[in-house]
């Protein structure tokens, strides 16, 4: 990793973890969503164990969507986004680094808190491991796809809701393969590896498509 990428990564990470960065609010939101679910569907532990992986995945999706508007918004507000655009570095790589830092700040805490929260949902140890693993592989895809929406709505004052609407359709494949992989780990006949590898493929695809499209959108929003 060349120097500027490391410097940018550390800057983004520090900003998101400091006071006002709001990265950890995502985890709080995740906790709130998971807590609300039993009140909605009832405290039946068998049912909760059945829908647990799906609930955790949807919670993680919502929490990721919630934090996405911070990806470029703050940088645009204080003008540093313009500096980054003018810096002459490849914008796609810059977006990728920003996404990576954003994921470490918001996505990784979700992955780490998922095992704790899955105890509330009566998941077996195997299912807990599967959910954590699929979230680890899948949430970067959500951040990378979300970067497109964040870049498109960066110039809008209240883009957060629109961002979520734009990003949700694209996150459906990630959700499908993430949930079925974590479900497949528990139920015997269905293979775990097929959906898991497809999930990994989705993350890799979005690592290409996301930064390229987001960089394009950022260039257009600036001129």
């Amino acid at each position: 990793m060349s120097g500027w990428m490391g410097a940018l990564f550390l800057r983004e990470l520090r900003l998101s973890l400091r006071v006002g960065g709001g990265a950890l609010i995502g985890v709080l939101f995740f906790l709130a969503v998971i807590t609300v679910i039993p009140f909605g569907v009832g405290p039946d532990l068998n049912l909760l164990a059945l829908i647990g992986p799906a609930v955790l995945w949807i919670g993680a999706l919502l929490a990721t969507l919630l934090g996405l508007d911070r990806l470029f918004q703050a940088d645009r507000d204080d003008g540093s986004l313009d500096l980054m655009l003018m810096a002459g570095r490849p914008l796609e790589v810059l977006v990728l680094v920003k996404c990576l830092a954003h994921w470490v700040g918001t996505g990784l805490p979700l992955v780490l808190s998922a095992p704790v929260l899955s105890i509330f949902l009566n998941l077996e140890p195997l299912a807990i491991g599967a959910v954590a693993l699929t979230l680890l592989v899948g949430t970067p895809a959500l951040t990378l796809i979300g970067a497109i929406g964040a870049a498109l709505t960066v110039s809008l004052r209240r883009g957060g809701l629109l961002l979520a609407v734009l990003v949700v359709p694209f996150s459906i494949p990630v959700l499908i393969f993430g949930v079925s992989a974590s479900g497949a780990a528990v139920t015997e006949p269905t293979p775990f590896l097929t959906p898991f590898l497809l999930l990994a493929a989705l993350t890799l695809i979005s690592a290409v498509v996301g930064p390229v499209a987001a960089a394009m959108a950022l260039r257009f929003s600036s001129d």
């Binding site: 498109l152 494949p173 959906p195 989705l202 498509v209 499209a213 394009m216 959108a217």
Partner: peptide
């Protein structure tokens, strides 16, 4: 003009994603 460009980016990303969505929904 700006709206057109933003929507164009989103449309093309959608065009890439639609087959993936179709495939994953079939699989699901």
């Amino acid at each position: 003009i700006r709206a057109g460009k933003a929507a164009a980016v989103l449309t093309l990303v959608g065009a890439i994603n639609l087959p993936i969505i179709k495939f994953s929904v079939d699989w699901w």
